[in-house]
Amino acid sequence: MPLVIRDLGLRPYEPVWEAMKAFTAGRDRSVPDELWSVQHPPVYTQGQAGKAEHILAPGNIPVVQADRGGQVTYHGPGQLVVYLMVDLPRAGLGVRQLVNIIEQSLVSVLATEGIEAAPRPDAPGVYVDGAKIASLGLRVRRGCSFHGLALNVDMDMEPFTRINPCGFSGMSMCQVRDFSPSANLDALAMRLTDTLAVALGHDTQAVQREPDLPGVGHNPAS
């Protein structure tokens, strides 16, 4: 079964979320898995476990109540988001195994930038010297995952100070640029989706790379 990887560019959060839900609801065992790499305009998303008190001062940044796991996080330009639509039974994976694949793929890709990162057993995500560089949040419906990961690359980090990221008061956040100023988001997206593809059992030579997803909003930068 092939894997489809889509690069959506900069897209509003809610249309992409709705497209993930529609894709998952409409798929069957004959539909290939997909990875979508995307950036979002500024938005806070609150997961199913989210508590209102963790949103301290959102200001003019919208807050969206999402159906993923976890609590509140921030998305903005310069952050690499990868959504994973994976048929878990077909891939022979459980949710914990998928989380491990995501975390280890991030650790591997960050190592190529000279960044020593690691997951934490008490809090999903990937960390550098105690500061969070990547967040995870998944939802599984009918055995199929959606939502995914967010890697801070080269973004305005100030909005993280207006929340308790992932429900942790005072959590330090960091980004790739702090350690590797020349890092390129597009190159990281290619490297990370390739790494995820291999970890999910795919041959990168057989991956179908698609530039777009029809009908999912418009690129705000265009």
Score class of each variant (00 low, 15 high):
27 R>I: 07
27 R>L: 08
29 R>W: 08
30 S>Y: 04
31 V>K: 09
31 V>C: 13
31 V>L: 07
31 V>M: 05
31 V>I: 14
32 P>Y: 03
32 P>D: 10
34 E>D: 12
35 L>Q: 02
37 S>D: 09
37 S>K: 06
38 V>S: 04
38 V>L: 03
38 V>N: 04
39 Q>K: 01
39 Q>R: 01
40 H>K: 00
41 P>N: 08
41 P>R: 06
41 P>C: 05
42 P>I: 10
43 V>S: 06
43 V>A: 03
44 Y>T: 05
44 Y>R: 01
44 Y>H: 07
44 Y>V: 12
44 Y>F: 15
45 T>H: 04
45 T>N: 08
45 T>D: 04
46 Q>R: 12
47 G>T: 05
47 G>F: 02
47 G>Y: 01
48 Q>H: 05
48 Q>W: 03
48 Q>G: 06
49 A>Y: 02
49 A>I: 06
50 G>E: 06
50 G>P: 06
50 G>W: 01
50 G>I: 13
51 K>R: 15
51 K>N: 07
51 K>I: 11
52 A>V: 14
53 E>M: 13
54 H>T: 14
55 I>F: 08
55 I>S: 02
55 I>D: 00
56 L>W: 08
57 A>R: 14
57 A>D: 13
58 P>M: 12
58 P>Q: 10
59 G>W: 10
60 N>S: 12
60 N>I: 08
61 I>H: 03
62 P>S: 07
62 P>M: 09
63 V>A: 11
65 Q>V: 09
66 A>H: 05
68 R>I: 04
68 R>V: 03
69 G>W: 03
69 G>L: 01
69 G>D: 07
70 G>F: 05
70 G>R: 07
70 G>K: 06
71 Q>N: 13
71 Q>Y: 04
71 Q>E: 15
71 Q>A: 05
72 V>Y: 06
72 V>L: 09
73 T>I: 10
74 Y>E: 00
74 Y>N: 00
75 H>W: 02
75 H>M: 07
76 G>I: 05
76 G>S: 13
76 G>L: 06
77 P>M: 04
78 G>M: 00
79 Q>S: 00
80 L>P: 00
81 V>I: 15
81 V>A: 02
82 V>P: 03
83 Y>H: 01
83 Y>W: 01
83 Y>T: 02
83 Y>Q: 03
83 Y>P: 02
83 Y>L: 02
84 L>Y: 05
84 L>N: 11
85 M>I: 15
85 M>V: 13
85 M>F: 11
87 D>S: 09
87 D>Q: 10
87 D>I: 08
88 L>V: 15
89 P>N: 09
89 P>Y: 07
90 R>I: 03
90 R>Y: 01
91 A>S: 12
91 A>Y: 04
92 G>P: 09
92 G>N: 05
92 G>A: 11
95 V>F: 08
95 V>S: 10
96 R>V: 11
97 Q>W: 05
97 Q>H: 11
97 Q>E: 15
99 V>A: 08
99 V>S: 06
99 V>R: 08
100 N>A: 15
100 N>K: 14
101 I>K: 03
103 E>Q: 14
103 E>A: 13
103 E>F: 12
104 Q>I: 10
104 Q>M: 14
105 S>W: 09
105 S>L: 06
106 L>F: 02
106 L>G: 00
106 L>D: 00
107 V>D: 05
108 S>I: 07
108 S>K: 14
108 S>C: 13
109 V>A: 02
